[in-house]
Design a binder for these strands. Structure first.
Lengths: 241, 241
DNA sequence: CGTAAAATTGAGCTGTCTCAATCAATGTGG
DNA sequence: CCACATTGATTGAGACAGCTCAATTTTACG
């Protein structure tokens, strides 16, 4: 039985490559089913620490990285030191679909928590895509999701108030983790610092703090112990629009 | 000689399908060269008037539209009546690359000028992509460009001042038209109303007006007769950051 | 030539920022 | 396991970029 490459059974609880995980992206591209359909991938799993830039702008990558574990963010850094978060990357998700088709990164990828990633070999992944139209469709649907999310963010930053943006972000993250099957009782893991929220919503940490305090005082949310609880989803949704 | 389908020689000066045009997208995907490589397309060219919604949110399209002539914008409309412009679509450009892989539109496409579009049949376009990896690559590069531009817009809206956003937009449009070979002497066609600039930059028409007045007073630009002249590109670039 | 759409200008207002100080939490070396 | 060091959260006071409202002028067009 030498068919499936020897894969370590530990260290990647979210990744479908190891046991029955919850890796959203790999599910998405349909690689969970018939195991032999898996494209060959580079097996090395790389650990990263929290609050580091794990891939740099302009870096050239031969692999297409998928976050196995932990949270990260795609960011653009401005010359004045400020930073815009373009997207949050949750455990199991593809770092950015552009890397399936391009090798040079034009954004930075910053880790939020510590965690790990694995890289697909781009050529082999592309070959797998060529082989299977279904896989192709699923990659493209991952792309569509990314792109739709970018459009929503543009709209939020351009036309929505601070309260709307923050509420929208919380609801959005909740929904995404829900779809990944990652609701833990009545709360979700929430490793974001107020800085992350600020950089994602185009606000200041000081102001984010005030908005969150308002939500907390109104009994809409509770953030503690790196977990977010949405106490009144209806009311929070109402803040969004 | 029945090989090339009978294509009317008029009404689509930018589109490579008719004569030696400048259709950026079709150039991009490599369909200008060996004429027989053209995927079959629906030949009907559709005219549209200025200031209309030409494709509606949630509309299902069998075709993948390319703007032959005129300017349009992808927009999202909020319930309070405000609007965010996600991207400007210039003559010759693909409306949105998402439509190559999906049939349902989740944004509106509003015309700015009058103009026309043609639609590729999605199935046939996909077949052409499957046939030619090069065509595939070029479609994906069109996608990358779109996506990169979205990232830049997010950054502008999240972290840049009004002056920076407006200056950035002007420079960006100038560069895009330059790449399309559409600089006319020392100016470019500029059909945008101040409303469009406001909706693209997340500002108010009143404030856009003040920023433009400042640029004009400082001798950086001149907008008149639906044309934009950049009188001091260096200085204008410097506004962007 | 009249009418509608777009641009311009002014006055005042407010959402969000800056600066600054304090407090809480988290992590680290000894 | 403590004491310190660092990072993050909170709060207040004041400032200002960009908004609203409203009136007027200019431009475009049938």
């Amino acid at each position: 039985m030498t068919l499936p490459p020897p894969v370590p059974k530990s260290g990647c609880p979210n990744c479908i490559l190891v046991g029955r995980g919850l890796c959203g992206f790999l599910f998405d591209i349909g690689l969970d089913q018939p195991f032999p359909d898996l494209p060959p991938i580079s097996q090395k799993q790389v650990e990263f620490a929290a609050r580091r830039t794990i891939f740099h702008r302009n870096q050239v990558l031969d692999g297409v990285p998928v976050i196995c574990d932990g949270w990260a963010a795609a960011t653009i850094k401005l010359s004045d030191g400020s930073r815009q978060i373009l997207s949050f990357i949750l455990p199991g998700e593809l770092v950015t679909s552009r890397l399936v088709f391009e090798s040079q990164l034009d954004v930075s990828i910053d880790s939020i928590t510590n965690g790990s990633y694995r890289s697909f070999d781009r050529k082999q992944l592309r070959a797998a895509i060529d082989r299977s139209p279904q896989t192709f469709d699923r990659i493209m649907s991952a792309y569509s999701t990314e792109s739709r999310r970018a459009d929503q963010l543009i709209t939020a930053l351009g036309r929505r108030s601070a309260v709307e943006r923050v509420a929208g972000l919380l609801v959005d993250l909740w929904d995404r983790l829900d779809r990944l099957g990652k609701i833990e009782g009545d709360s979700i893991e929430f490793p974001l610092r107020q800085t992350h929220i600020a950089d994602a919503t185009g606000l200041t940490t000081v102001y984010v703090n005030k908005v969150l305090a308002e939500f907390r005082n109104d009994g809409l949310i509770d953030i503690s112990d790196r977990h977010l609880q949405i106490l009144d989803m209806t009311q929070l949704q109402r803040q969004v629009n």
